[in-house]
Design a protein around this nucleic acid. Structure first.
Lengths: 103, 103
DNA sequence: GTTGAACATGTCAAATTTGATATAAATTGA
DNA sequence: TCAATTTATATCAAATTTGACATGTTCAAC
């Protein structure tokens, strides 16, 4: 997105292209956070499928809705880690497995 | 997730809520979830302290407030895993990089 | 014991997330 | 093919979480 060429161009034009550390660090955190969520999403989907549960059935188990389960598994940005983790715990995912993925 | 909405509906309709299986199962999930949050809270506090950061300084790094950091470290129920995880990820940054960010 | 810095606790409007609902798209099995 | 089941996507009011702030408590240095 922000490649070196573009950055040089902007700097040449007199723009300050952000404090590099801030930029990189926040991006890294966001990136790691998203990766974590995607990993949990995949685990969830795999686990649900291996238990032959439909999204609807599983939604019932966690007192939620099919559409929310679909969003969880799609890695939708508007789904919290809390919901993903509680879902995995409901499917009896060993807590150690979850911890291994967390920072 | 855990039932408040449905529970209110049922109670309003005159039901005593608490199917034993549901209760036990959800409690186990809740229990594991809380344990996980407490573990992360402790981890966060330890890591922050080992970096000699005050709560206020760290709050600045994650664009939050001292009081919220205190709540995170106290394992406050009203703090999400998302916030805890992002905080821990922020502290994963090499110490030298963090020092550069301080006043 | 006074002072000041660090931390804890309570409150709140604003922002985000939630389950529910509707409906479209995809998959499955005859 | 085609109907039934399953999954994806969009929307929304209600619930929860957020950072900010105010204020109280703890603790160390003097």
């Amino acid at each position: 997105m922000m490649d070196k060429r573009k950055q040089k161009k902007l700097e040449a034009a007199g723009w300050k292209v952000g404090n590099a550390e801030d930029f990189l660090e926040l991006t890294q955190v966001e990136s790691d956070y998203i990766s974590l969520k995607i990993a949990l999403s995949r685990h969830l989907k795999t686990r649900r499928q291996s238990l032959r549960l439909t999204q609807k059935d599983f939604a019932g188990m966690i007192h939620s809705s099919q559409s929310r389960v679909a969003k969880m598994e799609a890695g939708d940005p508007g789904v919290t880690l809390d919901l993903l983790v509680k879902s995995l715990l409901t499917l009896k995912t060993p807590i150690e497995d979850i911890e291994k993925m967390l920072p």
